[in-house]
């Protein structure tokens, strides 16, 4: 979903052709998202089918087709920009499943797993903190904000890990049943 609207948003600034969209998009997100060019093209086609973008009339060099935003596309984009996100919270499923299963299985060492996961999160925080600082140093405040979001999420994950460990500590017997 955000790829669709990301493309719409980029085209709102100026008409772009497919490859430009890819590079700009990746640059906008600071390299955190490597997009498949094929995915870009298929999304553009779908957007054109829905009447939100339209190819320009003249063709550029090498036969690249620049697209531009239609009026409908602009309205749709504006509507999307105004709306807050109401999607349900997305959680990391894998670790959750892992922990649940480890708790059930006889050979699952939940404490060990939690400790290791914690270490991962700490290192992640260190790396993210460094990244955030470098972004600010380079003047990329928008990127720094994105990284800040990641930091907060990681902190949340860490807190969650701690809560899980606390729960086990308090009621060690309960971990196995259910």
């Amino acid at each position: 979903m955000s790829l669709r609207f990301g493309i719409l948003g980029l085209l709102a600034e100026e008409p772009l052709h497919g490859y430009e969209v890819k590079t700009r998009f990746e640059s906008l997100l600071g390299g955190t998202w490597e997009v498949n060019i094929g995915q870009i093209y298929s999304t553009l086609q779908r957007l054109e089918r829905d009447g939100l973008v339209a190819p320009a009339d003249d063709r550029g060099d090498r036969g690249k087709l620049p697209y531009h935003l239609t009026a409908t596309g602009r309205r749709t984009l504006d509507g999307w920009l105004r709306q807050p996100e109401e999607e349900p919270q997305q959680l990391r499923e894998e670790i959750y499943v892992k922990l649940l299963l480890a708790g059930r299985l006889a050979n699952g060492n939940v404490e060990r797993l939690l400790a290791d996961q914690r270490r991962v999160y700490l290192q992640r925080l260190k790396d993210l903190a460094g990244l955030e600082r470098r972004s600010r140093d380079e003047g990329r405040d928008d990127l720094a904000l994105l990284v800040r979001g990641a930091v907060l999420h990681t902190e949340a994950d860490l807190k969650w890990t701690d809560a899980w460990a606390e729960e086990i500590r308090r009621a060690p017997k309960r971990g196995g049943r259910q």
Binding site: M1, S2, L3, L29, G30, G31, T32, W33, E34, E87, Q90, L122, Q123, R124, K126, D127, L128, G130, L131, R134, L146, V147, A150
Partner: peptide
Amino acid sequence: LKASPEVAPSDILRLRPG
């Protein structure tokens, strides 16, 4: 913990497509 200034963003951060 190791300090790694050369870590690339994508190693540690991915935006999830909706």
